[in-house]
């Protein structure tokens, strides 16, 4: 699968862009948090597309954002 780039993303309609990012992020986030992946993605999709693209390319930033969101979700659940 080709890497998702800013130019590919920019050629898609706005609502489609989040879908594309979510589809790419899903397997990566599922590998970190299988149970919360769907909720983590719905939360991170609120972030700017440029940052989401960065997360796809940088495991460190992906992990740190996932940790942040998991903390929020668990806090919300508690």
């Amino acid at each position: 699968q080709e890497p998702l780039t800013a130019s590919i993303l920019a050629s898609a309609p706005c609502e489609e862009q989040k879908q594309m990012l979510g589809e790419r992020l899903f397997p990566l986030i599922q590998a970190i948090h299988p149970e919360l992946a769907g909720k983590i993605i719905s939360t991170v999709l609120e972030i700017d597309n440029s940052e989401l693209l960065h997360m796809l390319q940088s495991p460190e930033s992906l992990h740190s954002k996932v940790d942040e969101v998991v903390a929020v979700l668990q806090d919300h659940k508690a």
Binding site: E15, G22, G38, S42, L73, H76
Partner: peptide, 22 residues
Amino acid sequence: GSSINWPPEFHPGVPWKGLQNI
């Protein structure tokens, strides 16, 4: 208490409509 359903879950292949009220 009961489990909270927020936020909605993203599923691959299912069109994502954002976090606005469903």
